[in-house]
Computed example of a mutant assay.
Amino acid sequence: MSTSSLPQRSTVRKKKPTKRRKKRSFFRTLSKVFLFCFILLIAGGGWFYFAPSAKNLRYSIADTLITTQHRYMAKYIIGEDGLKDRVTEYSSLFEEMGVEKDTHTITPEPEEVKEKPLVEIENVSGTGYSGYVMIVNDPTKVRLGIPNKVGSGEKVTSMVKRTGAIAGVNGGGFADPNWKGNGFKPIGIVISQGKLYYNGLGGKKSTQIVGLDKQGKMVAGNYSLDEINKMGVQEAVTFSPRLIVNGKGLIKNAAEGWGIAPRTAMGQRADGAIIFVVIDGRQPTYSIGANLYDVQQILLKHGAVIAANLDGGSSTVLVKDNEIMNKPSSQYGERYLPTAFLVFEHPEQVDMPNIWKGLDPSKIDAAKKRTH
């Protein structure tokens, strides 16, 4: 047999791809990936900024930024004019939410039926948020706590310990330059023990308050100082918006919920029990936060017939038995505040001296350094 008719093994070896060819192939693949991502980014950006279907998302992100110290960044989402319009829109909406006359009444349970502890705390959670609901079964046991040193606010933990309170949550807002305020200059008014302790209205005839009258009935809404006096308001701060009035929620949906943030709110059931809602936020691995619609729904679920928002954000804190129950978001730790709602076994024994007495609100330095 001829050797030429037998299958021959090729003596020509295929060249292995060189490192240069491998590198070119890698960069071609990488460039395709980058091109795909770029196209996706352009398409996504186009949808986010221009598509009607993305409007709610745009405003939700903008509203969330508005509640932070980075409010200015919202203009990159909805434009500078959009930012101004949004803030004006919410201000107008919050004013409207405080107008309807509150007609709720409370009917406390008979003493012989009461077997519940004064304070009950439960966990609450939902999509993206975690927090607590604190029920105070006797509304007459709640008093407004204020600082004890001129020139500085006070931590709620300090107020609770100093006054012998059982529990406490943060109260009204305050002037906070560069988000590093000393917590001593409240916004609006402060009423303690039935007396006007602080008046920062600057000529305004009315303000939105959150508080309690002598009988323990919650008061929330837009009132003049004369109306507040005639109603016998005992403890109150300025804050808004009112969330529930006469048993119905005032926020229609999440789109009107003023973004996602840590929240504190106060409500009351028909039996008089006070409901405090404290929601943590700005902590992605734990709790991002809640919008006001979420908070409203929690309050309604717990039977609130009236409710209002309190200062939130990095001020949000819940203290029970001298310990912080929640996880405040402030990078500086628990904040110094001008007011807090405190719960006492014997509130009649508590005295809160007026540290603002004789001071001109317009001359209080909100950014003055603390000495303690």
Rank of each mutant, 00 (worst) to 15 (best):
S2T: 01
K14W: 08
K14G: 00
K19C: 09
K22W: 00
R24S: 03
T29L: 14
F38C: 08
A43S: 14
W47C: 03
F50G: 05
A54K: 07
N56Y: 06
A62W: 02
A62G: 00
D63A: 08
R71H: 12
A74L: 03
E80A: 09
D81G: 14
D85K: 13
Y90A: 06
S92F: 11
M97L: 15
G98R: 06
I106L: 09
P110M: 06
E112D: 13
E115A: 13
I121W: 02
I121L: 14
G126K: 04
G128E: 15
S130Q: 15
G131A: 12
Y132L: 11
I135C: 10
I135D: 07
S158Y: 06
V160P: 01
G171T: 11
G172F: 14
D176R: 07
N178V: 03
G181R: 03
G183S: 01
F184P: 04
V190M: 00
I191R: 05
N199Q: 05
G200K: 09
L201C: 05
G202R: 02
G203F: 01
S206D: 14
I209K: 00
K214D: 14
G216Y: 12
G221M: 02
N222A: 09
G232E: 11
Q234C: 06
A236N: 00
V237R: 05
S240G: 11
I244H: 03
G247Q: 10
G249K: 06
K252Y: 06
A265M: 01
Q268T: 10
Q268I: 04
F276R: 01
F276L: 00
V277D: 00
N291K: 05
L292S: 07
G313I: 06
T316H: 01
V319P: 07
K320G: 06
G333W: 11
G333Y: 12
P338C: 05
A340T: 01
E345F: 02
Q349E: 15
M352S: 07
P353T: 03
I355G: 12
D365Y: 03
T371D: 11
